[in-house]
């Protein structure tokens, strides 16, 4: 079985691994690096649960081969914040009930972080556009929009 040597930086730490070319980035993160916070919901690019940051923008890790991430900087939910030092987006989702089962949440959070990076004060429509590729089956989405708006406010206050 042919394997490719890759070097991927995930949450600031560089991992050298040999992977089969067909290995999906989602499986590489979850099974090889044991970073199981990135979830897999459909594996055909519809649900957005597996969304991670790749070189500063979001990518569906189930639609990316790990070899394509060779040399890339990946950020996953594990790099965002910890339970005792949450990222403002995590804090906002907690306060505004932006999650129920939590399965779509990591992908939703990474997408929200990307949005707030390019648009610190998004409108409701901006938020609806940004997360329209992330399915949530629990919330009906409304509190997710509330959460992202609240996160924007927290981040602006932080920055001020």
């Amino acid at each position: 079985m042919e394997r490719e040597s890759i070097s991927v930086t995930v949450n600031g730490r560089t991992y050298e691994r040999a992977v089969e070319p067909r290995r999906l980035l989602s499986d590489f993160l979850r099974d090889d690096l044991r970073l199981t916070g990135t979830h897999v919901g459909c594996e055909h690019g519809v649900c957005g649960s597996c969304t991670v940051m790749m070189d500063g923008v979001t990518a569906r890790s189930c639609l990316t081969f790990a070899v394509m991430a060779d040399g890339a900087e990946i950020e996953t939910i594990e790099g965002l914040g910890s339970a005792d030092a949450m990222h403002p987006v995590q804090q906002a989702f907690w306060e505004k009930h932006g999650l129920q089962c939590g399965f779509c949440t990591p992908g939703m959070l990474m997408t929200a972080v990307e949005l707030l990076k390019r648009n610190p004060d998004p409108s409701v429509d901006d938020i609806r556009d940004a997360i329209s590729g992330n399915l949530c089956r629990c919330t009906g989405y409304q509190t997710i929009v509330d959460s992202i708006r609240h996160a924007a406010k927290l981040m602006r206050e932080d920055g001020a």
């Binding site: 690019g45 957005g48 969304t51 790749m54 923008v57 979001t58 990518a59 569906r60 639609l63 990316t64 997408t111 990307e114 556009d129 940004a130 329209s132 590729g133 992330n134």
Partner: peptide, 9 residues
């Protein structure tokens, strides 16, 4: 066309 994350790649 598609969604933001798909359009990124």
């Amino acid at each position: 066309i598609a969604h933001h994350t798909v359009r990124n790649r």
